[in-house]
Design a protein around this nucleic acid. Structure first.
Length: 883
DNA sequence: CGCTCCCGCCATGCC
DNA sequence: GGCATGGCGGGAGCG
């Protein structure tokens, strides 16, 4: 094929190249020449007068179609193979000057014929995919250029992309070494790893481009700095590295190529639209983002895409969105590479699953990144994949509201200098974030809302990443009141550390930094109490509970990091030790708040009385707030239960005062509950500032109902709650701040209601561990024999009030704890699903639904699972526009 | 008309 | 100054 084309193409370029050619190509020339005399070709165009020129003109005018046809034939002939006889026919038409025509054609191959993709194919055809190790193939740019009949410039385009994948390496000036695909999988793996670090968050939600775009905006800030210039992976390969090559400033095309590939590898769908890729790349570059740059980026991406297409790694597709049809590329190359894999990482947080090489790459990457982001990354909370998750989170978070940032800052413990860094980062981000100045106090990532019914609500602002976690842990909520007594558990951020040492949470920190996230996920274990079917996951539950315990306080961060939580894991056990917290015990029992699905009404009813206006409303929902804890739990689960325990311990130790009272309890409760319903809380961003949307992640629609006045209970999965309603809920920052407070104090603290309003308005983040408050207590206990009773349940007076509004008792009360995870839209990045993802990634990312399901459900049990699909839908809705 | 993306000017940097 | 690289964007081909 190449030859064939070459001959044709040759005519043109040769001329230009000739000078060059002379030196290098000897063999080639002869071949080319035969085809067409250079001059002839040239003249025609320039010279209208020449006979040929006239013909051309005529032809084109007369039958452009034909011309095209022929061109096509030529183009495809090689590829398709046969084009055949047609040609002749066409020629006939033209007749007179077939020759002329032909020449014309030859002279002016169609654009397609000259496409970079085709050129690349020709280029690749010259070299074996898997060259023998022994033989080293060197490539001379000039030679190739002349052979292929193109200018050198074009060869650079190809070579740069190939070099980014290590198919070739530059040996010396004008000399490249052909490696073939031997290293391709390894390279891709590295890119994948690096990509996860960098883009994990982004891609997670990818399937919805909307989300992506959406996030991008948010993310930009965060991510930006990263690697900007530097090549993600510097392959200067060993063999043939030319000194000069490395030194040179960055080769943007090469870097872009790597990043582009990374996007595919990180993407769940394996489909990346050009505009999204361009946006991402631009953002990273910090370019202003003006339109022209975008266009330029896209042009470059086309160049890269053409080469990758020739390599058989991607193919062009179209993605239709609401907005319309967009050009996109789908990865058709290898998806899995032997060693790497997120899962691995997830499994063994401590150890890096990644191959050393990758690791090295990632390490470099990290180091390279200077900015805040990186630090944040390092700070990674605890997710199983500590580092990555953390990083991701961080990056994503940029937007986190100041408050959050502050929180972060506050806590930094010894644990982490890292944490500190994070805090700083957070701050910056926050500052950056314009929009999100959400709640002031709220900083806390997690707040628990006591729901009227007993359900506890925990709201965790989770970054996207969080979702996954959600499932896990709802239990945490339970605690509501436990606060006081239980409060003793300090929420321990420490737990977070687990994995990599990333302390997800800073031990003492009262606050977690959350980027402002637009979404909160509520996790509630809804169980029907009694019913309960126990979820298959009994074990899980237990673990959960444990997790919950630990998690509770610090949870938020942890959760995120942990993502896993949701999943299966059940590390919970570890926590148990924490025994302190009864949770474990409870865990077995489903928290159950009975309530599940219908509950609303009852609760609502009950709630009425109670004072907590707002809170009450929510209560109806029956949601239990697993809240913050959940995340943690998740994390724990995924990784290690131990952590959780530790966290708890630590927390206690450190912050006796702080101890997030609720957390433990919550955890218990949560534990008890087999499932917790999870809800996604969507921040009102755009226009709907006043509304909050709750989507049940797991569950059946209906499951949630918002009682309260404002919110009519909906059977539908999604519930919109006026922000006001939420406001009413007392949110307790579960962080140390609250937690620390002794019961009494705690209660007070707890009692404090965060005005949701603030949340609602802007950033909704809040999570209180303490929040746990939930009245549930009573119910819970009942439910769980084991539990110590807990007083914990009792809400502090204040809490109670708020809680009271909610009824604990009512069947509803039991309410599954729900955790809200808030995802910060913008900043969310940090936590983004992606981070979580590693462990579960699929579930999470796939869809919100998946979130709930995947992790917890799937693993734990299939039965109860809620349909991911439904969830997804919901999410989608939210993402796009709530209505 | 808008997506693609070829073409080649010209900046950058090394020699 | 020459040459190797490669960023960049105008503007044309193509559907």
């Amino acid at each position: 094929e190449n030859i064939f084309d070459r001959s044709r193409m040759a005519p043109k370029t040769p001329i230009k190249n000739e000078p060059i050619d002379l030196s290098k190509q000897k063999g080639c020339t002869p071949e080319r020449n035969p085809i067409t005399p250079v001059k002839i070709i040239d003249r025609p165009q320039p010279d209208p007068w020449t006979p040929t020129a006239n013909l051309k003109i005529l032809v084109s005018a007369a039958s452009p179609d034909m011309r095209d046809r022929e061109k096509k034939k030529e183009l495809f002939r090689p590829i398709e193979n046969s084009e055949q006889s047609d040609t002749p026919d066409s020629l006939q038409y033209d007749i007179v000057d077939d020759s002329a025509v032909d020449e014309f054609e030859k002279q002016r191959p169609s654009r397609k014929q000259k496409s970079l993709g085709l050129l690349c194919q020709k280029f690749l055809a010259r070299y074996p995919n898997y060259p023998l190790s022994t033989e080293k193939t060197t490539i001379s740019l000039d030679e190739v250029a002349s052979i292929l009949g193109v200018e050198r410039r074009r060869i650079y385009d190809i070579v740069n992309v190939l070099e980014s994948l290590q198919l070739v390496s530059r040996v010396a000036k004008n000399q490249y070494c052909w490696h073939g695909r031997h290293n391709l999988s390894q390279t891709l793996k590295m890119l994948q790893d690096a990509g996860e670090l960098q883009y994990g968050e982004l891609m997670t939600s990818q399937h919805k481009e909307q989300d992506l775009e959406y996030r991008f905006g948010e993310r930009k800030k965060a991510v930006i700095p990263d690697s900007q210039d530097r090549p993600l992976l510097d392959f200067s390969e060993p063999d043939c590295i030319s000194a000069s090559a490395n030194s040179r400033k960055d080769k943007s095309l090469r870097i872009m190529s790597q990043k582009f590939v990374m996007l595919f590898l990180v993407s769940k769908t394996k489909i990346v639209t050009l505009d999204i890729a361009a946006k991402i790349l631009i953002e990273e570059t910090q370019d202003t983002g003006d339109h022209s740059k975008f266009k330029t980026k896209v042009r470059r991406l086309y160049d890269i895409a053409n080469v990758l297409t020739s390599l058989g790694l991607i193919k062009k597709v179209h993605v239709t969105e609401e907005r319309g049809r967009k050009p996109a590329f789908k990865w058709i190359g290898p998806v899995e590479f032997p060693e790497n894999t997120d899962e691995l990482r997830g499994h063994s947080p401590a150890s890096n699953p990644l191959p050393e090489t990758q690791r090295g790459a990632s390490a470099r990457y990290q180091t390279s990144t200077t900015g805040k982001q990186r630090f944040t990354r390092h700070a990674s909370f605890n997710s199983a994949q500590p580092c990555e998750a953390a990083r991701r989170k961080v990056s994503s978070e940029p937007n986190s509201p100041r408050q959050e940032r502050q929180a972060c800052i506050v806590n930094s413990d010894e644990n982490c200098s890292k944490m500190i860094n994070l805090a700083a980062v957070c701050r910056q981000k926050i500052e950056e974030d314009t929009g999100s100045a959400k709640k002031s106090n709220i900083t806390l990532p997690v707040s628990l809302l006591p729901v009227p019914g007993d359900s506890d609500f925990c709201v965790n602002p989770l970054p996207q990443a969080v979702f996954p976690v959600v499932q896990a842990d709802v239990p945490s909520f339970s605690l509501p009141i436990g606060i006081s007594s239980q409060a003793s558990h300090p929420s321990i951020p420490a737990a977070s550390k687990t994995e990599n040492g990333k302390p997800t949470l800073v031990p003492n920190q009262p606050f977690l930094c959350f980027p402002s996230s637009s979404l909160f996920m509520l996790c509630g274990g809804l169980q029907e109490n009694s019913m309960s079917e126990p979820l298959p996951t009994a074990g899980d539950l237990g673990s959960r509970s444990a997790e919950a315990q630990a998690a509770v306080p610090p949870t938020v961060c942890q959760k995120r990091s942990s993502q896993k939580c949701s999943s299966p894991s059940a590390p919970g056990d570890d926590e148990e030790p924490a025994a302190k917290k009864q949770t474990l015990e409870h865990s077995d029992l489903p928290l159950s708040l009975v309530v599940p699905k219908k509950p609303e009404s009852p609760k609502a009813e009950s709630s009425p009385g109670s004072g907590c206006s707002a809170a009450v409303h929510l209560e109806t929902n029956h949601l239990d707030l697993a809240s913050p804890a959940a995340p943690e739990t998740a994390n724990k689960e995924s990784t290690k239960p131990l952590d959780c325990q530790e966290q708890g311990k630590q927390s206690q130790k450190k912050d006796p005062d702080d101890p997030p009272p609720g957390s433990e309890h919550i955890s218990k409760e949560n534990a008890n509950q087999p499932f917790q319903p999870q809800y996604l809380y969507v921040q009102p961003t755009a226009g709907l500032s006043s509304f909050n949307f709750l989507f049940s992640a797991n569950q059946a629609p209906g499951a949630i109902s918002l009682a309260a006045n404002q919110m009519p209970s909906l059977s539908v999965p999604c519930v919109m709650v006026p922000s006001a309603a939420l406001a009413s809920f007392p949110l307790v920052p579960f962080t140390s701040a609250l937690s620390p407070v002794p019961d009494s104090s705690f209660s007070a603290a707890a009692s404090t209601n965060f005005s949701v309003s603030s949340l609602a308005s802007t950033t909704p983040v809040f999570i209180s561990t303490t929040a746990v408050v939930t009245p549930k207590v009573s119910p819970t206990p009942s439910a769980d024999p084991q539990q110590p009773a807990h007083p914990a349940l009792h809400l502090s007076p204040v809490l109670t009030r708020s809680c009271s509004a909610v009824k604990l008792d009512s069947s509803v009360c039991m309410g599954h704890p729900v955790t809200l995870l808030k995802l910060q839209q913008p900043s969310s990045a940090p936590l983004t699903p992606k981070s979580i993802r590693p462990a579960h990634h699929e579930a999470f990312f796939k869809t919100p639904g998946s979130l709930g399901d995947p992790v917890a459900w799937k693993k734990n049990e299939g039965t109860q699972t809620r349909n991911a699909s439904s969830v997804q839908r919901r999410l989608e809705i939210s993402s796009t526009s709530p209505d």
